[in-house]
Amino acid sequence: MNTATRLRAALADRLAEDGTPMEPEWGSAVRAVPRELFTGSYFRPVAGSAPTSYRPVREGEPGWLEGVYSDETLITQLDGRIRADDVSEEAVHGSPSSSSTLPSLVLRMWHRLGAEPGHRVLEIGTGTGYSTALGAHRLGDGSLTSIEYDPVVGAAAAAALKAANFAPRLVIGDGLRGDPDGGRYDRLIATCSVRYIPLPWLHQVEPGGRILVTLSGWGYANALALLDVTGPGEATGRFLPGCTSFMIARPHDRPPRPTLALLPGEERPSRIDPAKLDDWTGGWIAQLAAPSAERLGAGAEQILWDVSTGSQARTARDHDGGWTVVQHGPVRLWDRVEQAVHRWQAAGEPRQEEFGITVSPTGQQVWLRTEDGPGWDLPI
Results as ranks from 00 to 15, higher is better:
Thr191Arg: 10
Thr132Asn: 04
Gly129Ala: 06
His119Cys: 09
Ile197Leu: 15
Asp141Arg: 02
Ile172Phe: 00
Gly173Thr: 12
His119Met: 11
Leu122Asn: 01
Asp186Leu: 05
Leu188Gly: 06
Asp174Arg: 05
Ile124Met: 10
Ala167Cys: 04
Arg184Asp: 11
Tyr185Gly: 04
Ala163Trp: 00
Asp174Lys: 03
Ala160Met: 05
His137Gly: 00
Gly118Lys: 05
Val171Arg: 09
Gly175Glu: 09
Ala156Leu: 13
Gly125Cys: 09
Tyr149Arg: 14
Arg187Gly: 06
Ile197Pro: 07
Arg169Trp: 04
Ala157Cys: 09
Gly178Pro: 13
Leu199Phe: 08
Thr132Arg: 00
Gly173Phe: 10
Ala190Cys: 15
Thr191Cys: 04
Gly135Met: 15
Thr126Val: 09
Thr128His: 06
Ile147Arg: 08
Leu170Tyr: 07
Asn165Val: 01
Gly129Ser: 10
Val194Ile: 15
Lys162Ser: 14
Tyr196Arg: 13
Tyr196Ala: 15
Thr126Lys: 08
Arg169Gly: 09
Thr128Glu: 07
Asp141Gly: 07
Leu139Cys: 04
Ala115His: 02
Pro151Ser: 12
Gly183Pro: 12
Ala157Gly: 14
Val152Pro: 06
Asp181Asn: 13
Ala133Lys: 00
Ala155Asn: 08
His137Cys: 02
Lys162Val: 10
Gly178His: 11
Gly118Thr: 08
Pro151Val: 08
His137Pro: 02
Ser193Asp: 14
Ala164Phe: 02
Tyr130Cys: 02
Tyr130Gly: 09
Ala133Trp: 03
Asp181Tyr: 01
Ser131Ala: 15
Gly183Gln: 11
Ala133Ser: 02
Ser143Lys: 00
Leu134Val: 12
Leu188Pro: 11
Ala163Lys: 11
Gly178Cys: 08
Ala158Met: 07
